[in-house]
């Protein structure tokens, strides 16, 4: 409380003192691991929207052939496939992000360069799995 008394007399009692703030995000140079941290949250939020398509598909399937066909036509169109393609990459990115977090939970992979390698593995892995899943899907259908 001694600090309050030693402040300049010109400062009003109601103004907020300009105390130093702890370093926040903007003082750091953007790094790959920071982007990946944000992407894990963003992909998680995107999947909350993506699951609604799955719920819609399930409800449509629980109805008659007409309701299923409506959903199948929309989801099977080129635009529907593009949206599902996006959601599938989002899912695999979030899944591999979860694997990365599981590795970190054991206390491993947090040092340089392991954390950057894990970040790269998540990006490349998620793209590879997405490509593989869609390649097999096109071969079947």
């Amino acid at each position: 409380m001694a600090d309050v008394e030693s402040r300049p007399a010109t400062r009003s009692r109601t103004t907020t003192a300009e105390r130093p703030l702890s370093p926040h995000l903007e003082v750091y140079t953007l790094s790959l691991t920071m982007i990946m941290s944000g992407l894990h949250r963003i992909t998680g939020m995107v999947l909350c929207v993506g699951i609604l398509l799955l719920v819609w598909w399930l409800v449509a399937l629980s109805g008659d052939a007409g309701s299923f066909q409506t959903a199948a036509n929309v989801l099977g169109s080129w635009f529907g496939r593009l949206v599902i393609f996006g959601f599938s990459w989002t899912l695999f990115h979030h899944l591999l992000g979860g694997v990365r977090h599981a590795i970190w939970d054991t206390g491993r992979g947090m040092d340089h360069p392991e954390r950057e390698q894990l970040a790269l593995a998540t990006i490349i892995g998620s793209l590879a799995i997405t490509a593989l899943v869609w390649l097999v899907a096109f071969m079947i259908g």
Binding site: C48, L52, L54, V55, L58, V59, L61, S62
Partner: peptide, 16 residues
């Protein structure tokens, strides 16, 4: 929201 997703999909899957 999450409850709605859970209940709606449960209903659909059981109905199927």
């Amino acid at each position: 929201f999450c409850g709605a997703v859970a209940f709606l999909s449960t209903y659909a899957i059981l109905r199927i």
